[in-house]
């Protein structure tokens, strides 16, 4: 990781994200391998000397201390000068918009305020690495969305290297400089949000970060784009690939890039099974007989003419679809999100 970078560790529950944070902070000792800060191995360094502050899901605000005392916990331990402490406190309260509540106890605060206090406490301790373990999970969905930007810009403005663990792909896309997708203890892909979304390394990533439709077939032709033929004769187009002709592959395309039309040409003919209004988008399920269900996410202002039961064509542009090797354990196992 680079200095001052904001990295999201994204993966399902039980993927080992929190363990990584604990290893970085020194709370868990790895069986093997090194943690290196600024070129120095941290293996023999105790957690308290690493300057890597952990912010847990529940915030772990000390219930017997006020907001101010919580924030001053780090400076107190490090025995900063009284004046420095007061200045830090004032700065921090201002930064997290809590100047009006320094004497409140954690139990009197709302979820958002607790989260901000915990953040201020971490920043005040002079941390150079911030380890956030699902910092927004305990908050309401809507509040979570509004706090994303605030959290990121706070970390950015302090120039702190941040590692943020989350299971929420939207959160990761919106907040990260880079995303590391983790599954079953392994890093599956590391890249910018754009990379991870547009060029997923595996069907799992394609489906986990924004849903995807998948189609299984064999490579039929390779030119400027790849054409893949399914068992029942359907042919779909995708980006160029390195797979051999005749190889069994999986084509993945984001539901947001799947187009549904009533007229014109399409890879599949299907029937609209369900239409769900999701606000900005409409979520559409189209049943293609013998092939399965395709979903599409269409901006809602473009809807209007479609209704359940309509016969439609499904299509996507070749440069939005990616060819993957057939996963060893089968597609279903690869896509499991739990």
């Amino acid at each position: 990781m680079r200095n001052g970078e904001y990295l999201c560790l994204l993966g399902p529950t039980g993927a080992g994200k929190t363990t990584i944070l604990r290893i970085i902070s020194g709370l868990t000792i790895p069986d093997q391998g090194n943690v290196i800060f600024d070129g120095i191995s941290m293996n023999k360094i105790e957690p308290e000397d690493r300057r890597a502050v952990m912010l847990s899901q529940s915030y772990a605000l000390f219930p017997q201390l006020t907001v101010a005392d919580n924030i001053l916990f780090g400076p107190d331990i490090r025995q900063y000068d009284q004046k420095v402490k007061q200045r830090t406190l004032a700065e921090m309260l201002d930064l997290v918009r809590l100047t009006h509540r320094p004497d409140a106890y954690p139990s009197e605060l709302s979820g958002g305020m607790m989260q901000r206090t915990a953040l201020a406490r971490a920043l005040a301790s002079g941390a150079s690495v911030l380890l956030l373990d699902e910092p927004l999970r305990a908050l309401d969905a809507r509040l979570r969305i509004s706090l994303r930007h605030e959290l990121r810009s706070l970390a950015k403005s302090m120039g702190i290297t941040t590692i943020h663990v989350t299971h929420d792909q939207d959160e990761a896309l919106v907040m990260a400089d880079r995303i590391a997708v983790i599954r079953e203890g392994r890093v599956v892909q590391v890249g910018t949000p754009g990379d991870v979304f547009d060029n997923p390394a595996s069907p799992f990533v394609a489906n986990f970060v924004g849903q995807s439709n998948f189609f299984i077939g064999t490579v039929e032709e390779k030119s400027e784009s790849t054409s893949v033929r399914g068992e029942l004769g359907h042919v779909v187009m995708a980006r160029p690939c390195d797979h051999k002709l005749g190889e069994k592959v999986v084509v993945g395309v984001k539901v947001g890039n799947t187009e549904v039309h009533k007229e014109g040409e399409g890879y599949f003919d299907g029937t609209v099974e369900r239409i769900l209004f999701e606000g900005r988008n409409i979520f559409l399920d189209v049943d293609v007989s013998d092939v399965g269900r395709f979903s599409a996410k269409i901006p809602s202002w473009r809807l209007g003419r479609l209704a359940v039961g309509d016969k439609v064509k499904i299509k996507w542009s070749a440069d939005k679809a990616i060819v993957f090797s057939m996963p060893l354990g089968g597609l279903e196992k690869e896509l499991r999100v739990e």
């Binding site: 969905a141 792909q169 986990f208 769900l276 999100v337 739990e338």
Partner: peptide, 29 residues
């Protein structure tokens, strides 16, 4: 998890509608 949530909510509605249930669902999302 966020991703599981998305899959399961479609499931909820499908089952409720197929059984003709009256549903009261509380959420902050």
């Amino acid at each position: 998890d966020a991703r599981v949530r998305v899959d399961l909510r479609y499931e909820l509605r499908r089952i409720a509608k197929s059984l003709g249930l009256t549903v009261v669902h509380v959420t902050h999302d």
